[in-house]
């Protein structure tokens, strides 16, 4: 019962926050509304027993990426919000139409793509993969295939770091 109440409260909050993000004229307020949406989504993940993704959502999206957004908005010095308004653009109408199409597609996708969700079983109980403990065990268990790609990712990140230094430094 408590989860149902929590779900509906979060649902209303997240929808309001995302509408506010699209509607507000001030880009900084818009970005802050997006933070609200991200935090609501993180709370949804907790309701689904996916604590790890919830934490990552807050740290990476609501934290790092939004700070980047705000930095860019402030650095660009966009001027008064009124100057940014587009007039006579078809974009909002097309976007609304496509959004509705996407909503219908999402609602129908369960039957169209025969998504394999067994009825009456919540995903978190069905396979408790989302907890931090389960993710840790899966990543490091030699009997699971994830140890190797996890370790290989470190090389990928190292290459990215080397690349960033080469491209950014004036003199290597």
């Amino acid at each position: 019962m408590a989860t149902v109440i929590a779900f509906w409260v979060l649902a209303i909050l997240s929808v309001v926050a995302s509408i506010a993000m699209v509607v507000t004229k001030n880009p900084v307020r818009s970005a802050l509304a997006l933070v609200g949406t991200f935090i609501c989504v993180a709370a949804f993940y907790i309701l689904l027993s996916a604590q790890f993704i919830a934490a990552v959502q807050v740290i990476v999206y609501a934290g790092a990426i939004m700070v980047l957004f705000l930095f860019v908005i402030m650095l660009l010095n966009l001027g008064s919000p009124g100057a940014l308004r587009e007039r006579g653009s078809l974009q909002p109408i097309i976007a609304t139409g496509l959004g509705i199409c996407f909503l219908i597609a999402l609602l129908l996708s369960g039957s169209l793509l025969s998504l394999p969700l067994p009825a009456g079983v919540r995903p978190a109980e069905y396979e408790p993969l989302g907890t931090v403990r389960a993710i840790g065990i899966n990543l490091y268990d030699p009997n699971q295939p994830w140890l190797f790609p996890f370790e290989a990712t470190s090389i990928l990140l190292l290459v990215a770091v080397i690349g960033a230094i080469i491209m950014a430094k004036r003199k290597v």
């Binding site: 790609p149 090389i155 990928l156 690349g163």
Partner: peptide, 15 residues
Amino acid sequence: TLFVSIETLSVSLYV
């Protein structure tokens, strides 16, 4: 594993 290895190759080549 395939995705991680493809990205390792690709990122090196971008640089």
